[in-house]
């Protein structure tokens, strides 16, 4: 693989992410990591479900009384949309249209940052209500589950930004195409986890 090899849309392969041996390895390895992440989040969900609404006697907060759906709905829409924008970015990556890809990734990052901002606002709001990390088993499980997802969002954002800055001047090649592809896979996985968080934590929390 020659990093200086220049490509045109015409010579750019159909699947640049798996066109080299390194790309193939990264591709499979990253998916395996996602399988491991699935189990990680399952352990967190399982713990949350086991500890939902559990706390010291006379606990003030329960899921039904705490969560507010409008904010969660907004966060869900933002994250779902960012999933679509990263699909657009990959569409342009496959068309070897670097500028369009960077633009769509930029939108994805903005949406992701908004999501993260709303999550921080939400946590801050709960803490001000008195629902702190150490209040009860329920609060610990809630913050660790949703917070781990938030940490993944933060990592995903940093990854996108680092890739965009690093490659801003040199454009797409066989060396960085798999990296862009994997970062977008990671972003979709974050969305998958969020689908379960809004369903299991928030929606099922509100109905008690």
């Amino acid at each position: 693989m020659d990093i200086n090899q220049k490509y045109t849309p015409q010579s750019w392969p159909d699947h640049p992410e798996t066109a080299t041996m390194e790309g193939k390895n990264k591709f499979i390895g990253f998916w395996l990591l996602l399988a491991a992440e699935t189990v990680t989040f399952a352990s967190l969900f399982a713990t949350y479900l086991a500890l939902k609404d559990k706390g010291p006697s006379g606990m003030e907060f329960s899921a039904a009384g705490l969560f507010e759906l409008p904010l969660v709905f907004a966060m869900t829409m933002i994250l779902l949309t960012s999933s679509l924008t990263s699909v657009y970015a990959m569409y342009h990556m496959k068309n070897h249209n670097f500028k369009a890809m960077q633009a769509w990734l930029g939108i994805t990052v903005l949406l992701g940052a908004t999501f993260l901002g709303l999550e921080i606002y939400e946590f801050n709001h709960y803490v001000h209500l008195g629902f702190g990390f150490t209040n009860s088993a329920f609060s610990s499980a809630f913050y660790v589950l949703v917070g781990t997802h938030g940490a993944h969002v933060l990592f995903g954002l940093s990854w996108f930004i680092a890739l965009m800055l690093r490659n801003a001047k040199r454009g797409l090649n066989m060396y960085n195409a798999p990296k862009f592809y994997l970062a977008s896979l990671y972003w979709h996985f974050i969305d998958v986890v969020w689908v379960f968080i809004f369903t299991v934590v928030y929606l099922m929390g509100v109905i008690g």
Binding site: T38, V39, F41, A42, S43, F45, A46, T47, L49, A50
Partner: peptide, 11 residues
């Protein structure tokens, strides 16, 4: 599958 049995066990 592992995720499912983990959740199943803990609930």
């Amino acid at each position: 599958f592992v995720a499912f049995i983990t959740v199943l066990a803990l609930v």
